Amino acid sequence: MAARQRAATTLPSLIRALRKESPKPPSRNLPSLRRAFSLYDQINLIDQVPDDRLCFQSVTDTGFLVNGVNYEGSLLCVGNLLLSWSPKKFSEITADSLSIFQILKPTPEILIIGSGKHIQPVDPELRRFIKSTGLKMESVDSRNAASTYNILNEEGRVVAAALLPYGVSS
C-alpha cells in the first residue's frame, strides 16, 4: 500500500518535470513541398528512356520528337509500335483511319486521341466504333495526349495514341 501511495504522489511530479524539461525542436524552414514533390520531377523520363519503350520528348506544330528522332505529320502509336498516320486534321479521324483496332490483339486498354492545339468533340459515330473495338477513349490536345501516353506506357500498360501535330487547329 505504501508503494502505491508513493507512486501516486511521485507520478504527477514526474510528469510536471518531464513537461518542463522537454526540449523544443529547433525552428528551421522546411523545403517547399511544391518543389519536393513536383509532378515534373516524377515523370521526367526523357534522359532515361529504355530502348524498348517509346517516349515523346516534344510536340511541335508539325510533328513529334520520339526517342531522339523527329517525325513529321500525324502518328499512330500502339504500345511501342510507331506508325505514320494519314489524318491531317481532326475531321479526318474516322472509323476507317482507326480500323487497325478491329484486328489488333491484344487490344489496348485506352486510345488517347491528340486533337492538335485544342480539344475537339468526338463524333458520336466514331465513339461507338471505338467502343465496339473494346477500347476506352480519351480525347485531349496533342501535348497532353503525348504526356499521358508516356506515363501509361512507362507503367507497362498497353496503350494506343492517335496524334495530330500541335499546329493543327481544327
Rank of each mutant, 00 (worst) to 15 (best):
118 H>L: 14
74 S>T: 08
168 V>M: 10
98 L>G: 02
82 L>R: 04
145 A>L: 07
34 R>K: 13
135 L>S: 11
39 L>S: 11
162 A>H: 07
17 A>P: 01
32 S>N: 04
16 R>G: 07
143 R>S: 09
140 V>S: 03
15 I>Q: 12
53 R>D: 05
19 R>E: 14
51 D>F: 02
18 L>R: 15
67 N>F: 02
72 E>K: 14
117 K>S: 09
60 T>R: 12
79 G>K: 07
60 T>I: 06
25 P>F: 06
48 Q>H: 15
165 P>C: 10
8 A>D: 06
1 M>W: 10
162 A>C: 13
71 Y>T: 01
14 L>N: 14
74 S>A: 15
163 L>H: 02
111 L>F: 09
55 C>S: 10
11 L>D: 04
86 S>N: 11
80 N>K: 05
20 K>M: 14
100 I>H: 04
137 M>G: 00
14 L>H: 13
9 T>E: 10
29 N>R: 15
119 I>N: 06
115 S>T: 02
141 D>W: 00
23 P>T: 06
144 N>V: 02
170 S>Q: 14
117 K>Q: 13
68 G>P: 00
19 R>S: 12
162 A>P: 07
158 V>I: 07
93 I>T: 04
143 R>F: 03
57 Q>Y: 01
10 T>P: 01
114 G>W: 02
33 L>P: 08
134 G>W: 05
14 L>D: 14
23 P>N: 05
115 S>W: 01
118 H>V: 08
19 R>A: 14
20 K>G: 04
39 L>C: 08
170 S>R: 13
69 V>G: 04
156 G>R: 06
43 I>N: 09
85 W>A: 02
99 S>T: 15
147 S>F: 15
72 E>W: 05
60 T>L: 09
150 N>Q: 08
146 A>M: 03
167 G>D: 03
124 P>V: 02
87 P>K: 04
112 I>L: 13
151 I>L: 06
77 C>S: 14
33 L>V: 08
67 N>T: 04
102 Q>S: 14
118 H>Q: 10
98 L>D: 02
5 Q>Y: 10
154 E>T: 15
14 L>F: 13
129 F>R: 01
22 S>E: 13
133 T>L: 03
123 D>S: 14
80 N>W: 04
10 T>A: 06
138 E>A: 05
41 D>H: 11
3 A>F: 10
129 F>C: 02
87 P>V: 05
78 V>A: 11
138 E>D: 13
46 I>C: 05
159 V>P: 01
149 Y>P: 01
10 T>N: 08
80 N>R: 05
153 N>S: 05
20 K>I: 13
131 K>S: 13
33 L>K: 11
169 S>P: 03
155 E>Q: 10
124 P>I: 03
111 L>P: 02
10 T>K: 10
79 G>I: 08
82 L>M: 07
